[in-house]
């Protein structure tokens, strides 16, 4: 049993930590592409597509005219007015953690607090482009340290499961959004291998979910087959960022654990998580492409959002 507010803070703490890490990866990939010679730089402007993937177009457009590299990085990394910037995400994660620090192990709290202490004093003029890769790496490491502290020290009870629910819902949302923004490059276009530009795009898509090496192990094809890439990120049960993996985790290892611990019966959030997992487990990539990848992903994102509201309702989040 937890305070409803405590459960909510744990959920959002973990969710924002995950968001900061995903954001770091997304910026890293966009930055990498920007360093490549022109022809490789894609069908559309990569920095605009980063904004789209991060779901930050609205906040960006209200402040900036041009999606230049400098502006986008500024907005996604340190902008306090962007609630999803790395800085804001870390601050939200830390404030949520601070509000419920009695529910955190000392190691988890310290990892969160130490990260914020360093990040909060960083000024935007200190983050020059040569320092960006090192900084993004550091953010990923801090997020991994947080996750490790959680896995290594948290009691496996409701408080832990609420964190896990937050992290995996965010992760699924992130994978789905990145795929949705890039779905056009995955659409089958007749036969024959894709151009080298396409390959570059697929590789960076995989990179942005830290999966370009894993992909090679999973599908032994040297060239990227678009349906394989889509399959990998949506339906592969071994890939820890795939939609199926996230939902198996949420349904079997997170919400069902809370359900069992509380013994208060099955609630709408449990049903939604189960249904979504079943839907993914029984899905077929061919059919998804036939009925439209974009439609499929939009539907998934909506289900994922519904799950968040149902969890909040079921467990008295304020």
């Amino acid at each position: 049993m937890l305070l409803g507010r405590t459960a909510a803070s744990l959920f959002w703490m973990a969710r924002y930590m995950e968001r900061a890490e995903n954001m770091a990866r997304l910026i890293e990939v966009s930055y990498r592409i920007s360093l490549m010679p022109k022809p490789f730089r894609a069908h559309q402007d990569d920095w605009s597509s980063a904004l789209k993937s991060a779901h930050c177009e609205a906040t960006f457009n209200s402040k900036y005219e041009e999606a230049s590299q400098e502006n986008v990085i500024q907005h996604l990394v340190l902008d306090r007015e962007n609630p999803s910037s790395i800085r804001s995400s870390m601050e939200t994660a830390r404030n949520n953690g601070r509000a419920v620090r009695t529910a955190l192990s000392r190691d988890v709290w310290e990892s969160l607090n130490a990260t914020w202490n360093e990040l909060s004093i960083l000024r935007s003029n200190q983050l020059t482009s040569d320092k960006l890769p090192g900084f993004l790496d550091w953010i990923k490491q801090r997020s991994m340290l947080f996750r490790g502290a959680m896995l290594g020290t948290a009691l496996r009870r409701d408080s832990f499961h609420f964190c896990q629910a937050g992290a995996f819902i965010e992760r699924a949302d992130n994978t789905a959004r990145i795929l949705d923004v890039k779905y056009h490059i995955l659409l089958p276009r007749g036969s024959g291998p894709g151009s080298s530009i396409d390959r570059q795009q697929w590789a960076s898509l995989l990179r942005s979910v830290s999966a370009h090496r894993a992909y090679r192990w999973a599908y032994r094809d040297a060239s990227y087959q678009p349906w394989n890439v889509a399959q990998f990120l949506i339906l592969n049960p071994a890939m820890p960022r795939s939609l199926l993996f996230c939902y198996e985790w949420i349904s079997n290892n997170t919400l069902s654990e809370i359900e069992e611990e509380y013994g208060d019966g099955t609630l709408p959030c449990h049903e939604t998580a189960n249904e979504t997992m079943e839907m993914l487990a029984n899905a077929d990539m061919k059919k998804i492409f036939q009925s439209g990848l974009h439609e499929f992903l939009s539907d998934f994102i909506a289900r994922n959002n519904r799950l968040t509201s149902e969890i909040a309702m079921a467990y008295n989040f304020p």
Partner: peptide, 8 residues
Amino acid sequence: MRTTRAPV
């Protein structure tokens, strides 16, 4: 107090 279960 409001909790994740019944009020305490």
